[in-house]
Nucleic acid binder design. Structure first.
Lengths: 240, 240
DNA sequence: CGTCCATTTGAACCCGTTCAATTCCCGTGG
DNA sequence: CCACGGGAATTGAACGGGTTCAAATGGACG
């Protein structure tokens, strides 16, 4: 495993910032962040934090992709969230003043900044607009998590896989020719299974069925969505 | 179905308030609430709000019990949360500025107050302490929901039932003789199944097995926990 | 080129669902 | 007071989706 490498990423120049929760903090606050934060280039497989440890700051993803997951007592992994450029990670534990309730591991290398807890809380307490934004973010996160719970509890694996592919298409889709969209994220079959809450073999078998139905096509490890409407049918949607 | 009945419940005299999120708002704010809110005695089966409708205020439970749930496209119900005296309901939709993403129905009759949206937002924006409390609540809710997701995704129905009984014991337990605790909430077998995410028949069969193992005993519809440690083993806990 | 891990395929098994039938319980009205 | 009706709870039995274990294949990387 390669060593981490310090790099310089200025918030003021960060291409992901305008899409992030930091989109409208003040220049002064921005400067403080630049002064206090650290930025590291993480390789695939490196872990940002482990479940059960104490949060000392906030992770802000400049580039790359991260999975956030819990491990059950019998060693199974459940992925709760995927994060990409512009996303924050680890704020829930800071706000609830708990140890981390999940782990976060890089699945595609990238630059990730670390903002000291004190600076984050400082901005939170002094910038009402940011405070409100953070509150809304937590509220939205909760709504999403509730929907995920219902889907896992009540839908078949086949439906959940179709729904997950559509979700991934929305978040990581790269337009191709005609209707097709490439899902541009390096997820292993096992990761996909751990999002859906099923066994790796089941994912493989269902992907192969979807391929035979010409809903998707497999480009190596990546997935090309050919027929989104067909997937919507498989997912049995009426809303999200 | 009986009609609703208006009643007077003064916040300042409310026995549940000190346990609620309103535990330390100002007297002025309290008076405004008393002036603007309405209180109704709800019977079992009456619905506070339906998924997909627009939230116009906040429900505050003075007494009684409420289930919050979603209905899937194929008509199955998933219970997300149970609420009792001192709990707020429906704040997530208000804060995220969405329609309700779930429905709420009374399962044990009681008095429930309705606080106009404007008053809630007023307090939220003018009382930083309340704002912080609300934010922490959302963050805690999110942590709980994440844990539920993992449990449903990765644990067997047997483990989930044991875990749910322990959770209900914590929230609704009435100390009995020796180790025993009565779970004092009128949940139907179907409700229990809809918390766990399984079929009613499966819950009934497993409860009967737990009874044979002398982990619980059945007092009519209610459940008496005889051997909490035994249930912990069945739930395969190492943490929550 | 060989090693190691991810992916794929095969096959048996089992947990949980589903459908059907019966019993229990409780409120209601005669 | 008791019979009646209807929904909830229970029990039975068959089915099937998904897991699990095992083995083969493929592919990336040193």
């Amino acid at each position: 495993m390669a060593t981490k490498k310090n790099i310089k990423v200025h918030c003021s120049l960060c291409g992901s910032r305008h899409r992030s929760l930091f989109s409208d903090i003040t220049n002064t606050e921005l400067e403080t962040l630049d002064l206090h934060k650290s930025c590291i280039l993480y390789k695939k497989g490196q872990t940002l934090y482990y479940e059960g440890t104490r949060p000392m700051g906030l992770f802000c993803i400049n580039s790359g992709k991260v999975k956030v997951y819990k491990i059950t007592s019998d060693g199974k992994e459940q992925i709760l969230n995927l994060a990409k450029a512009g996303d924050f990670i680890g704020y829930r534990a800071l706000i609830s003043e708990e140890f981390y309730s999940a782990s976060a591991t890089v699945i595609e290398e990238g630059a990730i900044c670390y903002i000291p807890k004190a600076d984050f809380l400082e901005i939170l307490n002094n910038n009402p607009r940011f405070f409100r934004k953070m509150m809304k973010k937590l509220s939205d996160d909760l709504g999403i998590m509730e929907q995920k719970l219902v889907t896992i509890a009540q839908k078949s694996v086949r439906e959940r896989l179709a729904a997950t592919l559509l979700m991934l298409k929305e978040s990581y889709g790269m337009e191709g020719e005609e209707e097709s969209t490439l899902i541009d994220i390096a997820l292993s079959r096992e990761d996909l299974a751990n999002i859906i809450g099923t066994a790796t073999e089941t994912v493989i078998r269902l992907l192969s069925e979807f391929k035979n139905q010409e809903l998707i096509s497999l480009q190596g490890k990546k997935i090309l969505v050919l027929d989104p409407k067909g997937l919507v049918k498989e997912a049995d949607f009426y809303g999200i």
